[in-house]
Computed example of a mutant assay.
Amino acid sequence: MIPHAPGVPDVPAPEWSKNPSVVALGGGHGLSASLSALRLMSDRLTAVVTVADDGGSSGRLRDELGVLPPGDLRMALAALCDDSEWGRTWSAMLQHRFSSSGELDNHAMGNLLIVALWELLGDEVEGLDWVGRLLGARGRVLPMASVPLVVEADVRHPASPAEPEPALETVVGQSRVAVTEGRIEQLRLLPADPPASPEAVQAVLDADWVVLGPGSWYSSVLVHLLVPALADALHATKARRCVTLNLSAENGETAGLTAVDHLEALHKHAPGLRIDAVLADPSAVEDVAALEAAAASMGARVIMRQVRRGDDTAKHDGLRLAAAYRDVFEGVYGDV
């Protein structure tokens, strides 16, 4: 049975719950964590990845060649490699970074491979599909938009002896937003009405489940809600929607935010979006009752599972997270 929000009747789990079509949205290490888990339970998997990175190897290639920043796309592809000698070797190759005193320093090999295919084929999606086939990736990787994007945030800084009134600052660039100090009040994309990847929109519309998070909450997760056609698809799809909360607040953009604050930020940027499930690790929830109330206001129920690694680091364990997703998709909401 799949339970809904309180007061809504439970419904039988559909047949697809054993091999659901899943779209995972995000970027960076957070998306890699969800993909590493989801690939263990479904072969109908699509990653829709942010294209706003402006730092490091990705930023350099973006500036020099005018391409989509490939770094988050590369990390998603690496996460979808299977746990065989072939998969581990190609995953390591994608993630390999050069170290030199020249122009190649800190460039990721996977970034260069992806951009080379884009130049040869003239099509970003086709190029990513070719990389996926080379790797034997268990799923597809798509950009969330067809053009490189810039993240912009209004950040409220607390009052201080030097600044007695709270100051509002506009921070521009994903790399700067990710490490900003202060409370982010509003997030924007430049251009403001970017073209969504048509394949990403269709994947969301065709999905059984859409997974948002974990990851850098503003600069990697919520940005998907600001691409109009993609946001429309997230509202219109018949898929169920699962929000995966982070294991801890990050230094920078979410410093000091509670689990409830994360949900409220999502609701602020997509007030009409219905959520069906909120997955959280008990160690990351300060007030269970408050989280349940916040989730219920968005139509969701909370599922609490230990998904943190046993070494007590703020990283997800792939097997534990896969088991938690299985429970979400099959409607097993009781405490475990």
Rank of each mutant, 00 (worst) to 15 (best):
R241G: 11
G215H: 05
N106W: 01
S101C: 12
A5M: 08
E253G: 11
A167K: 14
A294T: 00
G127S: 10
D43V: 14
D123Y: 04
D105I: 13
D287Y: 08
D123R: 06
L112W: 00
R183N: 15
W217N: 14
L135R: 11
G30V: 08
L104E: 13
R88G: 12
V171P: 08
T313M: 12
I303D: 02
A289C: 09
P271D: 09
P195T: 09
M93F: 05
L94K: 10
A13P: 07
R309A: 06
V204R: 11
P69F: 02
A162S: 10
G55K: 08
H316Y: 07
E253H: 07
M41V: 15
V223L: 01
L40T: 14
A289S: 13
L120G: 04
A47L: 05
Q95N: 15
D261F: 07
L291M: 12
P20Y: 07
H29E: 13
G182W: 04
L245V: 02
A200I: 09
D123S: 04
E124G: 06
A178C: 07
P20W: 06
V204E: 05
D276T: 12
P191G: 06
S58W: 01
A79Y: 01
Q174S: 05
H157P: 05
S297T: 14
V125K: 12
L234W: 03
E15A: 15
D281M: 08
S197V: 01
P12A: 15
R183E: 15
V155H: 13
L73A: 03
I275S: 09
A239E: 12
L45V: 03
G122L: 03
R138V: 06
